[in-house]
Simulated assay, not measured.
Amino acid sequence: MNLRWALLWLAIVLTGCQSPQNRLVAEGYPPAFAAGFQDGCGSGKEAAGAFTGQFQKDVPRYLKDKLYAEGWNDGFRQCQAMADRRDRLDPGQVWNDRDRDWEREKTRSAAKAYRPD
C-alpha cells in the first residue's frame, strides 16, 4: 500500500515539474508553437512588471516560423493578462523597499488619523 502512495506522489510531483512547453507538446500542440508560447509567456510576465528576467524572443525564428510566432503572441497575451490580473487582486503586494516604506507610512498615517484624541 505504501508503494502505491509513493508512486502516486512521484507521478504528481513529476507532472508538476513539467515545463509549459513540454505540457503543450503532450497536449498535442506543435513543438514550434509550444516553444513560442513558453518564450512569449515569460516575456508577457516581464512586460506586466513581474521582473522575472525571462524576456525571450527568437526574432529570426519569429519572423520565419508562423507557428512559433503564433505561440509567442498567444503566450505573451495570456501570461501578461494573468500577471496584470494577479496585481489587481493583490493590491498590498510590495515590489521593493521604497514601496514597503510607503505602505508602512500610509498605515501609520491612517492609524493616527483614526485614533481618537
Rank of each mutant, 00 (worst) to 15 (best):
A35Y: 00
A35R: 14
G36A: 14
G36L: 14
G36P: 08
G36Y: 03
G36H: 02
G36N: 10
F37D: 04
Q38C: 00
Q38T: 05
Q38A: 15
Q38N: 14
D39F: 02
D39Y: 04
D39W: 03
G40K: 08
G40A: 02
G40T: 07
C41S: 11
C41V: 02
G42M: 12
G42K: 03
G42W: 12
S43C: 07
S43T: 15
S43D: 13
S43F: 12
S43Q: 04
S43N: 09
G44W: 01
G44K: 03
G44T: 08
G44N: 02
K45W: 10
K45T: 10
K45E: 14
E46H: 13
E46Y: 06
E46K: 10
E46R: 01
E46T: 04
E46M: 05
E46I: 04
A47H: 05
A48K: 00
G49Y: 06
G49D: 07
G49A: 06
G49V: 11
G49I: 07
A50S: 08
A50R: 14
A50Y: 09
A50I: 02
F51G: 12
F51Q: 13
F51H: 14
F51W: 15
F51C: 11
F51R: 15
T52Y: 05
T52V: 11
T52E: 03
G53C: 10
G53N: 12
G53P: 11
Q54T: 08
Q54Y: 04
F55Y: 06
F55H: 03
Q56V: 06
Q56T: 08
Q56I: 00
K57P: 00
K57C: 15
D58G: 02
D58I: 03
D58W: 05
D58K: 08
V59C: 02
V59K: 14
V59W: 15
P60T: 06
P60G: 06
R61N: 01
R61P: 05
R61F: 03
R61L: 13
Y62K: 00
Y62S: 09
L63S: 12
L63E: 15
L63K: 15
L63C: 01
K64N: 04
K64L: 02
K64D: 05
D65L: 13
D65S: 11
K66W: 07
K66Q: 15
K66H: 13
K66I: 09
L67S: 10
L67F: 05
L67E: 15
L67M: 13
Y68G: 08
Y68F: 11
Y68V: 14
Y68D: 07
A69P: 12
A69L: 11
A69F: 06
E70I: 00
E70G: 05
E70P: 09
E70W: 06
E70R: 01
G71F: 11
G71I: 14
G71H: 03
G71T: 12
G71C: 09
W72A: 07
W72N: 01
W72G: 09
N73I: 01
N73A: 12
N73W: 00
N73V: 04
D74C: 01
D74R: 14
D74L: 11
G75T: 03
G75W: 10
G75F: 13
F76W: 12
F76H: 13
F76V: 00
R77M: 03
